[in-house]
Amino acid sequence: MAHLRESAEKALKMLRTLPRVQLSNIRPNPNSKKNTKRGRAQHSGDKHGAGNKGSGQRQNYMRLGYETGNNPFYLRFPYEPYYKGHHLRRQYPPISLLQLQVLLDTNRIDSKQPIDITTLCNSGLLRLQPASMEYGFQLTDEGIDRFKAKICIEVQHAKESVIAAIERNGGVIRTAYYDPRSLQAMVNPSKWFEKGVPIPKRLLPPQDAVEYYTSAKNRGYLADPEEISKERLVLAQKYGYELPRIEDDPDYEMLISQKDARQIFYGLEPGWVIGLKDKLIIKSKSLPEEQANREEKS
């Protein structure tokens, strides 16, 4: 073993005299670098992995799925176009009655005020992206048995059972349509006001949504109020509960507060500009469109 000790000592001795490992004297591991040059002809020039003849050699690959004249596999079978026009369909992100009850219980939403998209978005727990075809919230029936709040709520879509659950507790529900531009203002009103832009005028629903929002069964905002009060009674009989009289309610004013079909914020009219810093409201005496119409007539 003497020679081993000797060689170890020799190596240590060498290490003491060698310079330190530093940037100037390090080099890559042997065989770790590949030659990037591709030789031609006698300088190792062959096929270079591309093979002999055909699209492999010429690098002109066929388009994906093409079977050189056969009926391609991806076109061979008929299919149902379920997702046709999906990018144009209106989306309604769901909120459940349970979620709503939690928001009310944890004091994130005030039940003494009417609830709409702005109230829900201002809670900071729900998001709406009008730019991604989201046209508002739909109220779903999850936690329907636990829902005990008396509220005045405006959503964009609600099932019959959900309507019954809210009206049973003495609340009021309306379904209303908002166009994307109005939604953008509603999602973050303070940002809209800071821009110094007038409050937009709500557009009427598109043709395929008119039927839904004019129906009293869906509590549509364009439905006849008398029809709605009749449908309230019909639903109470169908689900077997006694309809609380909202006329005798202490919060009657809150429960019947509703927006105009062209209005997006309670109490504020379209065309007004809100100055948040100086706390002033710039009210238009006549809307620009109205004035333009008048000019055209005269």
């Binding site: 809670s123 009103p189 109490g267």
Partner: peptide, 20 residues
């Protein structure tokens, strides 16, 4: 278009309601 600038408008409570 003609506008009316209102300070301390009675509608200001509705604006406050919209602030998160």
């Amino acid at each position: 278009p003609e506008v009316e600038i209102v300070q301390n408008a009675p509608e200001w409570k509705y604006v406050e309601r919209l602030m998160p």
